[in-house]
């Protein structure tokens, strides 16, 4: 029924003279590299700390319930590493969706009000002494994050203008940050701990219940992002080009925002507003496999996971026995890395 123009049946010309990095091979290579990196960081996260175990010993203790180190490896370090990996992946994909669908390289979930929404709820729970059982705390934070995200999405309406999305998101985030400060002001000195446990972004003292609470949301979000990725890729070329390619632009952008908000909310619910992972991981992924959401989707979550697990590991060890909130580390690493990336981009 569809007539194919005749030139499409012709022989395939060899156009490329210097194929330094054919995309077909760059992607599997980057995936292998980042998986290896993540595995390495993961084993380190299981092994290091107090007590420090060799990697073989740590993996052995994980499987052997009779090992004295089994509890610390299997019930403390493993869920924490998995949570770091899951949240890192969620943040990375959230940032990727936002950056490509809004055509803004510095867009991130911070600008959707999602992190602020979760922070407001968690602060309120602690400062006002609300009776929320520990097991339900992640859900409360998730609710706050989703409400804030929904507010931004409703305020935007069916806009065609990506700039508008960022402005509304920044306004809601600022309002959330103000609320957090106001709530902390109501509290006592004892509540300062909250700052370290949650508001700066932390993975300390998280375990299987936290992981169980958010894993389904993260899984759902990643699956939805996988289905959206090639549509989102076309949005990066401009709304008219995307429409010309047959993509429903407004619907795709709204879906991308919803999925990004869901992923960021799941992450913020358990580990607070971890800064810069969402911003940085997509840029690292683009360095590895080039632009195009269809490919970067496979690499960005692995990068984000490795980043967050590694940052958490460093925070756990550097001032032992005191833990530095992981959000501090991601900020300290994220800002110079981002500046370097921007400088390198302009220089070439």
């Amino acid at each position: 029924m569809i007539t194919i123009p005749k030139w499409t049946d012709g022989p395939v010309p060899r156009t490329t003279t210097a194929r330094r990095r054919p995309p077909s091979r760059a992607l599997p290579r980057a995936v292998a590299l980042t998986v290896a990196l993540l595995a390495l960081v993961g084993v380190a996260a299981l092994s290091l700390g107090e007590p420090t175990l060799g990697p073989v010993r740590a993996l052995g203790a994980l499987l052997d319930a009779g090992d004295p180190a089994h509890v610390v490896v299997a019930d403390v370090r493993l869920p924490r590493a998995l949570l770091g990996a899951g949240c890192g992946a969620a943040l990375a994909v959230s940032g990727l969706l936002l950056q490509d669908s809004l055509r803004n390289p510095v867009a991130g979930p911070e600008l959707l009000g999602v992190s602020a929404g979760a922070a407001v709820v968690m602060t309120a729970v602690v400062v006002l002494g609300l009776q929320v059982p520990l097991a339900l705390a992640p859900y409360a934070a998730l609710l706050g994050a989703l409400v804030a995200g929904a507010m931004v999405l409703l305020a935007i309406g069916a806009t065609r203008d990506p700039e508008h999305v960022l402005l509304v998101g920044a306004a809601v985030s600022a309002a959330g940050a103000g609320l957090v400060v106001a709530l902390v002001g109501l509290g006592t000195e004892g509540d300062v701990v909250l700052l370290f446990r949650y508001l700066l972004g932390s993975l300390a003292a998280r375990g299987w219940p936290h992981l169980e609470a958010v894993a389904p949301w993260i899984g759902l979000g990643l699956l939805a992002a996988a289905l959206l990725r090639s549509r989102v890729a076309t949005l990066a070329l401009g709304d008219e080009v995307a429409t010309g390619l047959g993509v429903p632009v407004v619907r795709t952008r709204v879906l991308a925002l919803v999925v990004a908000a869901l992923l960021a909310a799941a992450s913020a619910a358990v580990c607070g507003p971890v800064a810069y992972v969402a911003l940085l991981a997509p840029h690292v992924a683009r360095r590895l496999v080039g632009t195009g959401t269809r490919r970067t989707f496979w690499v960005a979550p692995l990068v984000g996971a490795a980043l967050l697990v590694a940052a958490d590991l460093v925070c756990r060890l550097v001032l032992y026995p005191v833990e530095v909130p992981v959000g501090v580390a991601t900020t300290l690493v994220g800002v110079p890395a981002l500046l370097l990336a921007l400088a390198g981009r302009r220089g070439r």
């Binding site: 055509r103 990066a236 070329l237 401009g238 709304d239 008219e240 080009v241 080039g290 195009g292 981009r345």
Partner: peptide, 8 residues
């Protein structure tokens, strides 16, 4: 209105 993504 076509926009080239940065770095593409």
């Amino acid at each position: 209105s076509a926009v080239a993504p940065a770095g593409a």
